[in-house]
Amino acid sequence: MDTSGKALSYYPGCSCSRNGIGRHYGFSSLAVLRALGITVSEIEDWNCCGSNLYRVVDEKGSYLLGARNLAKALEMNLPEILILCPACFLSMNRTLTEILANTKVRNEITKKYSILGSPASSRLRIRHVIDFLVNDIGEEAIKNRVKRRLEGLKIAAYYGCQITRPYSYFDDPEFPTSLEKIISWIGGQPVESPLKTKCCGGMLMLTNEEEVLTVIEKIFNSYVREGAECIVTACPLCHLNLEMARTRLGKRISVDKRLPIIYFTQLVGLSFGIGIDELGISKNIAEHLIEKMVLTATV
């Protein structure tokens, strides 16, 4: 598919924005897309999607949160919205589905945002960056862009839960393979874990720490068993939880202290030859990974 020059609107969400805890996910994703010739335009003055928390306090209000962002994307005439954070992806998808399918919600929302009641709203699409890279950009374009192949590096993909659930239209809800495809296109060796879409506990890390730690302990152990040399994530909260749990679990897990846990877009960026500062990769991690990389003759 020719995607060069394709334009999408971009919704960073709180976590992946420049102040967010997952800013490097945001930076690296934008760098990778730029390298592939894709322009994305950040939705101006976007607001928090409300995730799965706000709706517990106020369900109607949570739809309004999503709707404001959708309306802005439509006003920009960029109805295809790229999203990185799985929680944003889920809640924006839910808002869109409800607006399209639930008359009660639609009537409520269009009172405030009439553009969402217009026929143009049927063009709205929420796209996850994984979906976009695998299904629109594709194997050839990504392979062509690789400058340093991660030859033989055993890379484990940790998807977390909400990328493919419950809106699982671009991959299997339990056993997705999109990230493994990307890993192999950049030369890595994907390693499988049956727990790759098991929940990291999410926000419960703050309220039920011990419970969540045991859940993540299992996830780590399964990756160690498969001999992972690097774990890539696709969610700012998963990322934070894995990092935090690694510190807290300490000796309860036998994970190599140097085992890099990075966003998959950082890894892709690295193989594209993008600078580590732009990608937000720390020096130690980069050195550890670059040791494993080989220069390809193709570029």
């Binding site: 709180c14 976590s15 924005s17 102040n19 967010g20 805890i21 607001n47 928090c48 409300g50 995730s51 928390l53 706000y54 517990v56 306090v57 106020d58 949160l65 926000m203 419960l204 703050l206 309220t207 039920n208 934070l240």
Partner: peptide, 20 residues
């Protein structure tokens, strides 16, 4: 958990965004 959600909602109602 309810406390967490309340705090979360407070930020959204005030700023429209959150900071983890």
């Amino acid at each position: 958990y309810p406390k967490l959600m309340e705090t979360y909602a407070e930020y959204i109602n005030k700023y429209g965004r959150i900071s983890e």
